[in-house]
């Protein structure tokens, strides 16, 4: 059996990649996809812990996270559509009305 730590390392790397994407990317759709990446890394850690502890709680938690991700994708993408309709661009540098 593959040790738990290996899965956690992979989850950590994927989470970090997602975080870098959120900070660095300028395209709002790429930022959104990076958020999905981070959610998935959390899912992987949950399942790994669940296997290690022999308890099914993690599976149910992942189920909930998937529901949240679906809801978030629906609302977020409609926000992107509304934004694109107003600004005619997917670049977040042009959305600076509330920037300090």
């Amino acid at each position: 059996m593959v040790p738990l730590e290996y899965y956690l390392v992979v989850a950590g790397i994927i989470f970090t990649i997602g975080m870098i994407g959120v900070i660095v990317a300028r395209n709002i759709i790429i930022i959104f996809m990076s958020i999905e990446l981070m959610l998935n890394a959390a899912n992987l850690a949950m399942i790994a812990f669940s296997r290690n502890l022999g308890s099914m709680g993690g599976h149910v938690m992942v189920f909930m996270i998937m529901t949240v991700a679906a809801a978030e994708a629906a609302v977020g993408l409609s926000i992107i559509i509304a934004l694109f309709r107003n600004r005619d661009s997917a670049n977040i540098d042009e959305v600076n009305l509330m920037k300090w």
Binding site: Y7, I29, F32, M33, E36, N40, N43, I47, A48, S50, R51, H59, V62, F63, M66, A69, A70, A73, A74, L77
Partner: peptide, 22 residues
């Protein structure tokens, strides 16, 4: 990791539905 149901959900819901929405 013996999470068969979650793996299938991952493919159907995540890779299927959410990505098609994107």
């Amino acid at each position: 990791l013996r999470a068969a149901f979650i793996a299938i959900l991952q493919v159907i819901v995540y890779a299927g539905a959410i990505m098609v929405l994107f």
